[in-house]
Design a binder for these strands. Structure first.
Lengths: 141, 141
DNA sequence: CTCCGACGTGCTACTGTGTTGCACGTCTTG
DNA sequence: CAAGACGTGCAACACAGTAGCACGTCGGAG
């Protein structure tokens, strides 16, 4: 929203020597501004106010951002992907999924170390920790 | 497949004082026989050999099994639920998702203890650990 | 500057997973 | 047996995500 997040988005794309298109910087700006992982639908709704971006284009832009390392793709409990802008500490943190409002939060404070004992001939690639519960916005009182 | 798993399935349902219908025990039998979490599509394909069960009925039977505590419902990385028969140790273990063949395995050997530091007013309900990689069946040599 | 190819966007249509509503059949209980 | 609850099947739908194609735009070669 602010000039700051917009410029951050544009420069982040420009630094990769990639085309700074409207769809790209507006999408990345939305992720920067949110500060928490957003679903495709949430991003689309947020962008709709000042000119909608095509549904499919948004999917492709999001995948492009992930491929260029500007965003992360995480799974939601509702079987919809969430996308978050890549900040400083990007790996190894858990995600909190609110079972009431569906929002997802990054728990960067938790840096778990897993001790793994996989069966033979299993090859490990990646691990994820996800928590469920209700967020502060959804508490009764 | 064997008489054993079939009888196990039937008695497990009967012990709850619920109707032992064909759809129920055949579904539960399939879960017992598999020994690993199965997707709806996998179960449907497995049952098709000796008489298909309606797609929707299978969804409802699976939810019923989960509700009666006879099965567990876990998330796959491909946005499809997996269902596994409830054995002895049912909680707190991680799941391994093969990125090549899509199969899911229970890692009952890993009993993680998470130390959580949630933000204020966040209410914890449940945690899950999921691993990605390639399973033994999918190793190159 | 102009042309041309690569790239980005938008539209339509499709797949796969899961759900809802309704009709019909079956079981069970009085 | 009658009545109601329950289980199953069918059709239609909702939603997330993908594929194919056409069009436009950008940017470099000539």
């Amino acid at each position: 929203m602010t000039q700051t997040t917009r410029e951050r988005a544009k420069t982040a794309i420009a630094e990769l020597d990639e085309r700074v298109t409207e769809a790209r910087w507006r999408t990345l700006e939305a992720l920067f501004a949110a500060g928490r992982p957003l679903s495709h639908a949430e991003i689309e709704a947020g962008l709709a106010a000042d000119g909608a971006i095509d549904r499919v284009t948004l999917y492709r832009v999001l995948d492009w951002l992930v491929g260029r390392g500007l965003a992360h793709k995480i799974e939601g409990h509702d079987r919809a992907w969430r996308f978050s802008a890549v900040g400083n500490d990007t790996h190894g943190h858990a995600h909190f999924h609110c079972t009431r409002c569906g929002k997802v939060y990054c728990l960067t404070a938790i840096q778990p170390t897993l001790v793994l004992a996989l069966p033979p001939r299993f090859h490990f690639e990646e691990a994820g920790i996800s928590l469920r519960g209700t967020c502060a916005d959804c508490q009764p009182h």
